[in-house]
Simulated scan of single mutants.
Amino acid sequence: MTPSDASIDLPEPVAGWVGQLRYQRQAQALVAATNVCALCAAVEDANPAWWDSAVALELLGAEFTPPAMVSSWTRPELWRPDDHSEVMPLQLHYDLKAAFDYPTALVSGFESVFYQPAVLNDRLSSSQLLQKVSAEKTTRLGRGRFWVIEVRYHNQDEALVATEQFDCFGYRREVES
């Protein structure tokens, strides 16, 4: 299943999406200690490096944030008066469901790779990349396609902070007669 496989019949505009960065978005807010504390309180993470800047500087050399928070920094606020976009955090996934007319799609695999930590006061950005799409297949769930989306996170210096890879399956249930 490669993006350049000519035997896979992809409708337009999906064929043009493969290998193209889409939905490049800059975070609305800076990486902030209050958000780190809120997450750590919610999951009862008592790591002193997340709670005390002096400890963070002593242990880590900088005020890093928990790696699991990387995607939270670029997610849109629930509502902002200056943001009228309707882009979802994994919008490309929803675009594919619509393009293939699949009522259901799920994430069957997920992997994060961290290259460098997000530091307090960084402003992160994200972009989505459709890596590949399969031909239609029939599974126990129904008839559909597999696709792989990579989300890339960069800091304000354009340094790669992390990537997330989503392995997905969009499908339509087959009606038994």
Rank of each mutant, 00 (worst) to 15 (best):
P89K: 02
E136C: 06
V107H: 00
T104N: 11
L92C: 09
G109T: 00
W79I: 12
P67Q: 05
P103H: 05
L160H: 11
G142Y: 02
V14F: 08
F169H: 02
W17N: 01
T138W: 04
R80D: 13
N155I: 09
E86G: 13
W17T: 00
W51Q: 11
Q116F: 05
T104F: 10
M88C: 10
E150G: 01
R22H: 07
L124V: 06
K132C: 08
N121G: 07
I149L: 09
P117F: 08
A38R: 14
T2F: 13
V18K: 02
D157K: 06
D45A: 12
V119F: 01
A68D: 06
C40T: 15
T34S: 15
V113H: 11
A68F: 12
A49N: 09
G19K: 07
W73A: 00
L96E: 03
L59K: 14
S127A: 13
R25Q: 14
R143I: 09
Q24L: 11
S53F: 02
S112D: 09
S108I: 04
P3H: 07
S125C: 11
E150S: 05
V107T: 06
P76H: 11
Q24E: 14
S177K: 13
F110E: 01
R152M: 07
V119A: 02
P81R: 12
W73C: 03
R25F: 11
V18G: 03
G142P: 03
L60Y: 08
V87T: 15
R152P: 01
W51C: 06
E44W: 10
Q128R: 03
L96F: 07
T163P: 10
R75D: 12
A62G: 13
H84C: 09
A33D: 08
E174N: 11
T65I: 03
G61M: 05
R123W: 04
L57Q: 14
W147C: 03
A56S: 13
S7T: 15
A99E: 05
I8H: 05
E58V: 11
Y23E: 07
E150H: 01
E77P: 11
D5K: 04
N155D: 15
D82E: 13
D5Y: 01
A162M: 08
T138Y: 03
S134H: 06
V36N: 01
W79T: 09
A162R: 08
S126G: 10
Q128S: 15
F64A: 15
F146G: 00
A159N: 15
D122F: 04
Q91C: 08
D122K: 05
S177M: 09
H154G: 02
D52H: 14
Y94I: 02
D83T: 09
D167Y: 00
E58C: 11
I8W: 03
E63D: 11
S72H: 14
A105H: 02
Q26L: 14
S71H: 14
L106H: 05
W79R: 10
I149C: 02
P76F: 09
R140F: 06
E63I: 05
A162C: 06
V107K: 00
P13M: 01
A105F: 03
S177R: 13
S125Q: 15
H84R: 12
D82Q: 14
V148K: 03
Q20W: 09
D122E: 02
P89V: 06
